[in-house]
């Protein structure tokens, strides 16, 4: 009888303490006794209420931001005319030399897939040329575009024609630092825009590979460990991947670098638009504006 009772209490405790604390909440402090459980649920109900309030607030703010984004996209449209872009850019006090964009590959969606990604790159490239940006790094986590230079190039050419006409077509060169490939091969003089494609592996993975390389050199006696300094690594990172971007524009709904190479974002201005999920000119322009207004003072 006593045994049954105890097991009943045990079972009750199981039900109350473990089943009634919803697994999904993952509380910081889990209750262990009945009193604590009651107190826990008293406060947890308030928390659920607050979460609902937050959800409502997010809903309202999402509607507001979507409306704002659409309105701005309507007001600031490039109309595929470089003069309009130049006009927008002229008002800015400074322009980044080196811009990076974070894109994401979307399957089975309108404007998604590989072609959608290429079209996005082509649009961004056209705006960059209009704004006088010299180097564009395209980051996409899974690296879909790394070995699709030829197809991307033809999409970019087509888009550039629609912006600049076929008479004075700007020159563009694509490269993938990871594979050491470039397209089209040798050019006469500097291209107006250099586009580099990078992926998740150029981040942490590259630093790991670099360490392995240094370690092997150290074992062969070609390098002293004391040579591994911030300057040396910085030089190798720039040589092998891309230079530090001045501005990183995230074309996603939230502030998530999504694995963008950590070494590179030291002093980069990071721009994103809340609840935005499209690659539009107004987002690009607002990023440029934020960069123009920011003041960089290293350590001061």
């Amino acid at each position: 009888m006593q045994l049954r009772q105890r097991s009943l209490i045990g079972r009750l405790k199981d039900i109350f303490v473990y089943s009634l604390v919803p697994l999904g909440t993952k509380p910081a402090v889990a209750p262990t006794s009945l009193l604590q459980l009651v107190v826990f649920h008293f406060f947890h109900v308030i928390l659920i209420g607050l979460h609902i309030l937050v959800a409502v607030a997010i809903l309202v703010s999402r509607q507001y931001h979507v409306l704002k984004n659409n309105l701005l996209a309507f007001l600031y449209h490039h109309h595929r005319t470089p003069q309009l872009i130049a006009q927008d850019i002229q008002a800015l006090s400074k322009i980044p030399r080196d811009v990076a964009v974070v894109l994401s590959y979307k399957e089975s969606e309108e404007g998604g897939g590989l072609l959608g990604l290429m079209e996005q790159v082509a649009d961004i490239a056209s705006w960059c040329i209009g704004a006088g940006v010299k180097h564009l790094s395209v980051y996409e986590r899974t690296g879909q575009l790394l070995d699709a230079h030829e197809a991307t190039y033809s999409v970019i050419q087509r888009t550039l024609v629609s912006y600049y006409g076929s008479q004075k077509l700007p020159t563009v060169r694509l490269s993938t630092p990871r594979f050491r490939t470039a397209y089209p091969g040798p050019l006469q003089g500097e291209p107006e825009l250099e586009i580099s494609f990078i992926c998740e592996k150029d981040g942490r993975q590259f630093l790991v590979e670099l360490t392995q390389d240094y370690a092997n050199k150290a074992i062969r006696g070609e390098m002293d460990p004391s040579e591994v300094t911030v300057d040396r690594i910085g030089k190798d990172v720039v040589d092998w991947i891309v230079s530090e971007p001045d501005l990183v524009i995230i074309f996603g709904p939230k502030l998530d670098l999504d694995g963008f190479p950590p070494w590179h974002v030291r002093l980069s201005e990071i721009y994103y638009t809340k609840y935005n999920n499209t690659v539009t000119y107004s987002v690009f322009l607002r990023g440029m504006r934020q960069y123009a207004d920011c003041k960089i003072n290293i350590g001061r």
């Binding site: 370690a215 300094t229 070494w263």
Partner: peptide, 17 residues
């Protein structure tokens, strides 16, 4: 942070040596 990463890499290279 760069100094942090570099220090970590240097330590590993030292250990490998």
């Amino acid at each position: 942070s760069r100094d942090d990463i570099a220090t970590s890499m240097r330590d590993i290279v030292q250990e490998s040596e």
